[in-house]
Write a protein that binds this DNA or RNA. Sequence first.
RNA 1: GUCUCAGUAGCUCAGCUGGAUAGAGCGACAGCCUCCUAAGCUGUAGGUCGUGAGUUCGAAUCUCGCCUGGGACACCA
Length: 556
Amino acid sequence: MNIVEQVQKKLKQEIREAVLKASLAAEEQIPEVILEVPKEKAHGDYSTNMAMQLARIAKKPPRKVAEELIEHFDKSKASIEKIEIAGPGFINFHLDNSYLTQLIPTILESMEEYGRTAVGNNQKVQVEFVSANPTGDLHLGHARGAAVGDSLCNILDKAGYNVSREYYINDAGNQINNLALSVEARYFQALGLEKEMPEDGYQGADVIGIGDRLAEEFGDKYVNVPEQERFDFFREYGLKYEMEKLKQDLENFRVPFDVWYSETSLYNNGKIDEAMQVLKDNGHIFEEGGATWFRSTTFGDDKDRVMIKQDGSYTYLTPDIAYHKDKIDRGFEKLINIWGADHHGYIPRMKAAIQALGYARETLEVEIIQLVHLYKDGEKMKMSKRTGKAITMRDLIDEVGLDATRYFFAMRSADTHLDFDLDLAVSQSNENPVYYAQYAHARISSILRQGAEQGIIYDLNANVSILGSEKEIDLLKKLGEFPLAVAEAAEKRMPHRITNYIFDLASVFHSFYNAEKVLDLENKDKTVARMALIKSVQITLRNALALIGVSAPEKM
RNA sequence: GUCUCAGUAGCUCAGCUGGAUAGAGCGACAGCCUCCUAAGCUGUAGGUCGUGAGUUCGAAUCUCGCCUGGGACACCA
């Protein structure tokens, strides 16, 4: 707990104490103390609406309640400088903010650990994301899911959760057969032979590439082998090729995974049968029309779902249920799935399955990633995966750059539609919000470099108590918020809270930079203290950027 | 038709557990480099928070209806 959290806690305690001493409410009647930072600086450092909340219980007008509360408030505690009643009954606290300078040694000592909290309680959380079919290139929606998922994992980790990142490989079922047939067609075509693409074949350029590669490597070797052998070979080859490319693309996008989980493995190790058996034992399975059904309506789904089709094969749902059972069997207490908007209708049946297996519905959380629309020259770009005309994640990174892409995806809440302005993201100018934060970091680095050249040394023991100007206090306040911002982003599963924080911190720094000079040879003590301050800003900025996978350059 | 997400400044979006005069960026306008990076700073203009009701001391925020837009509603994955 840093000094800011300690002061807030103290303040809340004192407010409760005052309520009791003033006999405004009995102990069990007191609502949770809400402290907020007023938008208006004139309204003090913190304010509480306690008096308004108590008005009914105390049967007195809010301002009267506030007066009595203040009367019994012990001002000697919690650095209080002044207390005022304002508006309809707010109580505004003005603090002696000199305590904030204690943040500096805390941050300098914590370094890359600053921001870490234990709110997650080491809970075992698994985040499954991207999980795109290995049948083509990752597109924009996947890129957004990857960026949001990775950022969320970083944030959860920082907030004290025990996180595992997982990718579910859909390497079974029709779409892979389709891939095999598409590869086959492209292979024949690469050799100049006639071969039609399957009806729902993958038209992407990457499959053409696989065909070319096969033709080059093996010549016409596979033209005249038995069909089944050829099919099996192309299936394996295509899958391996697509997966390698996928892994490489994600790695380039700074998105690592701990586990790559194969759907096929569920078929081979009996886990599907196992899951089916549990559902059967729990009485949620029935036969009808030659198919085997899961009675998901018991748990609020719109209709029951087929698990084994008339032809004896599984639907997509069946291995997926086994997969989720396996996740829980592996000891995860919370499963977070990050899905594209098109899978949105799938949530109720998956949650139903979790319940039918005998677990709490809330074990599974699904975060939906809404669609991305690309705009260029003010116009929406059309794309279609079927015809292979989609812009791929790789195209996007090549054109926009890694940092800008990550930042753009992280900065919008994931469940709203995103209009991605290519021209804006590409622009290397002040129009681009990505550079704003990086620029602040580079500026700080530059000042610290020059300070060092002039032999100015600061350390944990720098006398920071001499800091206290308005801009310095603004900076310190913002620095103190970081652990809270991370904790809140984690608990609400909202990575974009972090970009908001980054922007705010950078903004306060730029403002400070323009108002006050750091390096001042006439006043060495102040220079040392300010260098320690901006070093703290640099550390915090870098930590925050790391959470969303954006680099913190020393120079720009 | 059912479900779901959204609608906030000209554009793109924030807005916390319901709080005070609804905020940023871009764009427009006016200023700031003899000074650590002007990719920056300071200020001005710009709003019926889609709409109608309800809940209450108080609603952009919660509830319901309606309008508009996106998406999902397979024995596909």
